[in-house]
Amino acid sequence: MLKIHHLGHAQSERIVWLCEELGVPYELRRYQRDSVTNLSPPELKELHPLGAAPLVEDDGLLLAESAAIVEYIIVKHGEGRLRLGPDHPDYAAYLYWFHFANGNLQPAMGRMLWMNQAGLAPEHPVRAAMRGRLERVLSFVEARLGEAACLAGREFTAADIMTVFSLSTMRLFLPLDLGPYPNIRAYLQRIGERPAYRRAMAKSDPDLTPLLT
Rank of each mutant, 00 (worst) to 15 (best):
211 L>Y: 03
168 S>T: 14
44 L>G: 00
100 F>V: 00
154 R>E: 15
79 E>I: 05
74 I>F: 03
18 L>H: 14
163 T>Y: 01
135 E>N: 12
123 E>L: 15
47 L>K: 13
50 L>M: 09
20 E>W: 06
123 E>Y: 12
106 Q>F: 15
152 A>K: 00
46 E>R: 11
47 L>H: 08
139 S>W: 09
157 T>R: 10
124 H>R: 11
102 N>K: 11
124 H>P: 04
93 A>F: 10
211 L>D: 02
132 G>F: 11
127 R>N: 06
210 P>G: 08
171 R>Y: 08
32 Q>A: 13
147 E>I: 01
53 A>Y: 04
70 V>W: 00
20 E>F: 06
4 I>P: 02
137 V>W: 08
90 D>R: 14
176 L>W: 00
202 A>L: 09
84 L>C: 01
40 S>W: 00
154 R>H: 13
74 I>C: 13
122 P>T: 00
86 P>R: 04
66 S>G: 13
30 R>T: 07
114 W>G: 11
63 L>C: 11
188 L>F: 01
192 G>R: 02
145 L>R: 06
146 G>L: 14
165 F>Q: 04
139 S>L: 14
17 W>G: 01
131 R>W: 12
66 S>I: 02
92 A>C: 08
80 G>E: 05
69 I>K: 01
148 A>S: 11
28 L>Q: 11
23 G>T: 02
132 G>W: 08
8 G>Y: 12
182 P>A: 12
72 Y>N: 11
212 L>H: 03
27 E>H: 10
163 T>A: 07
30 R>W: 06
132 G>I: 08
131 R>T: 15
154 R>I: 07
210 P>L: 09
115 M>K: 07
84 L>F: 08
7 L>C: 01
142 E>H: 08
210 P>K: 09
111 R>W: 05
89 P>M: 00
201 M>Y: 10
151 L>V: 14
30 R>P: 01
200 A>W: 06
209 T>G: 05
29 R>G: 04
190 R>C: 12
91 Y>T: 01
7 L>M: 05
174 L>W: 14
93 A>M: 11
142 E>P: 07
195 P>Y: 08
27 E>S: 03
78 G>Y: 04
163 T>Q: 02
27 E>F: 06
88 H>E: 05
202 A>F: 07
74 I>D: 04
187 Y>W: 09
79 E>R: 11
7 L>W: 01
66 S>H: 01
188 L>N: 06
117 Q>K: 14
159 A>E: 00
103 G>E: 02
24 V>Q: 09
120 L>Y: 06
68 A>W: 00
105 L>C: 12
140 F>Y: 09
25 P>C: 07
206 P>G: 04
69 I>M: 01
41 P>G: 06
32 Q>P: 10
30 R>L: 02
62 L>C: 04
15 I>Q: 05
37 T>F: 00
171 R>T: 15
124 H>D: 15
181 Y>G: 08
124 H>C: 07
147 E>F: 10
158 A>H: 00
54 P>R: 09
15 I>G: 04
22 L>W: 10
88 H>K: 07
209 T>W: 05
125 P>G: 08
2 L>K: 02
62 L>V: 10
193 E>C: 04
70 V>M: 14
104 N>Q: 13
122 P>Y: 14
104 N>Y: 11
122 P>C: 12
81 R>A: 15
111 R>C: 08
108 A>L: 03
32 Q>T: 12
26 Y>E: 03
95 L>W: 07
